[in-house]
């Protein structure tokens, strides 16, 4: 029962922030994809950098739950290509389209309906697609800590690289 209220609270907070970040606005998202404005990409990579450091803190005090999804060379890559076409075409993500629909953008309602259709289609063909594309090149739930040895060092390196990537995008495309 608590989970339901935590989900609702987290969702409301998340929806407010993505709207205030401009991520529910198809115009802002298109300008980001066209490298005319670096504000949204810089926001995204910086949020990941900060959250990675925050998660190190949580793990240090033994709070929370993590779950690393596996890397499948083919399925993660092909899924990403299909997803990227949808993102570039619509300007929405599976999360932002809920917030944009709530904001009153009718094109987001159609993205949401298309999303339900796409999820239903995948669920229908899961039994064929997962053995064909996901399982053969599944490398398991690997993380950067595999190469650095320590998760804290890996998180620091990731935060530094993402912070620098955000700075470069902000300088090159503008982020005011």
């Amino acid at each position: 029962m608590t989970e339901i209220w935590l989900g609702l609270f987290s969702g409301i907070a998340f929806g407010i922030v993505v709207q205030r970040a401009g991520a529910t606005n198809g115009d802002e998202m298109a300008r980001a994809h066209l490298m005319l404005d670096g504000r949204i990409p810089r926001f995204m990579v910086s949020a990941v950098a900060l959250a990675a450091l925050g998660l190190v803190g949580l793990q240090a005090v033994g709070v929370g739950r993590t779950m690393v999804l596996p890397t499948s060379l083919v399925a993660t890559g092909v899924g990403g290509v299909i997803f990227g076409v949808g993102w570039g075409l619509s300007g929405y993500c599976p999360g932002t389209c809920w917030a944009a629909a709530g904001e009153g953008r009718l094109d987001a309602v159609f993205a949401l309906l298309g999303g339900l259709a796409g999820a239903a289609a995948f669920a229908q063909w899961h039994e064929v697609l997962v053995p064909a594309l996901y399982l053969p090149t599944n490398l398991g739930p690997i993380t950067l800590a595999r190469w650095t040895g320590s998760p804290v060092a890996a998180a620091a390196a990731l935060a530094a690289v993402f912070g620098a990537a955000g700075w470069v995008m902000g300088r090159a495309w503008g982020s005011d």
Partner: peptide, 30 residues
């Protein structure tokens, strides 16, 4: 676009939040 987003996300195992943001925060290669 929405159809492609969700079809691709379900194949990959997640979306911008569930795979990119959540995954990278956990240092996941995926």
């Amino acid at each position: 676009g929405g159809f492609l987003l969700l079809f691709g996300a379900r194949l990959a195992g997640g979306c911008t939040l569930g795979l990119f943001i959540s995954g990278s925060t956990q240092l996941a290669v995926s």
